[in-house]
Amino acid sequence: MNTVKELNKWANSHTYFTLDLVRIALGVFLFVKGITFITNIQYLADLISPIDKIGGGMFMVHYIAPAHMIGGIMIVFGLLTRWAIIAQLPILIGAIIVNFMGEMHSQNLLLAIAVLAVCVFFLFYGSGKHSADYYFKMQK
């Protein structure tokens, strides 16, 4: 717990508006991706078909889209950002694995790696000063 507090103190003292814009862009991207998956469920089923043999295919279909939508909204507002990103990590790691197990799409692979890298950054950095987390913390 002290490590999280130390990370928050460091992040709040080194916060920049640009990083908040990157966090918001990440959240909007994830939300739009979730909307895309919900409106075209067959596309999502085709994407996860290479790892569907492992099992839990229907669970993945019902987890990915809502996790992207709800997590995206939470990341945009900076509300429980680390928890929202933790929910995204298995999806993003699965997106990278799908590219190696199925047909390789280099553009999708690069996008998944980039989003994973940004998520890992914000997992350690937190939501920053311009967020709901910081606002609620200051209300005490």
Rank of each mutant, 00 (worst) to 15 (best):
F31L: 08
F31C: 07
F31W: 03
F31R: 04
F31V: 02
V32E: 07
V32I: 09
V32Y: 12
V32S: 10
V32W: 13
V32L: 04
K33Q: 12
G34N: 02
G34W: 00
I35H: 00
I35D: 00
T36K: 13
T36E: 09
F37G: 02
F37L: 11
F37Q: 02
F37Y: 11
I38P: 05
I38H: 08
I38K: 00
T39D: 00
T39Y: 00
T39S: 01
N40E: 04
N40K: 10
N40G: 07
I41D: 09
I41T: 11
I41K: 07
I41V: 12
Q42C: 07
Q42V: 13
Q42G: 08
Y43Q: 14
Y43P: 01
Y43G: 11
Y43V: 14
Y43W: 10
Y43N: 12
Y43D: 14
Y43S: 14
L44Q: 04
L44D: 01
L44M: 04
A45Y: 06
A45W: 03
A45F: 10
D46F: 03
D46S: 08
D46W: 06
D46P: 03
L47I: 14
L47Q: 08
L47V: 14
L47Y: 13
L47F: 15
L47R: 03
I48L: 15
I48S: 11
I48Q: 04
I48G: 07
S49M: 12
S49T: 06
S49A: 15
P50Y: 08
I51H: 01
I51Y: 05
I51T: 02
I51M: 11
D52F: 15
D52W: 13
D52C: 15
D52L: 15
D52Q: 15
D52H: 14
D52V: 15
K53P: 14
K53S: 14
I54A: 13
I54Y: 11
I54M: 13
I54W: 10
I54D: 12
G55F: 03
G55S: 05
G55H: 04
G55W: 02
G56T: 06
G56Q: 03
G57M: 13
G57Q: 09
G57Y: 08
G57K: 13
G57C: 11
G57V: 13
M58L: 15
M58G: 13
M58Q: 15
F59K: 04
F59Y: 10
F59C: 07
F59S: 12
F59T: 12
M60I: 09
M60D: 02
M60Y: 03
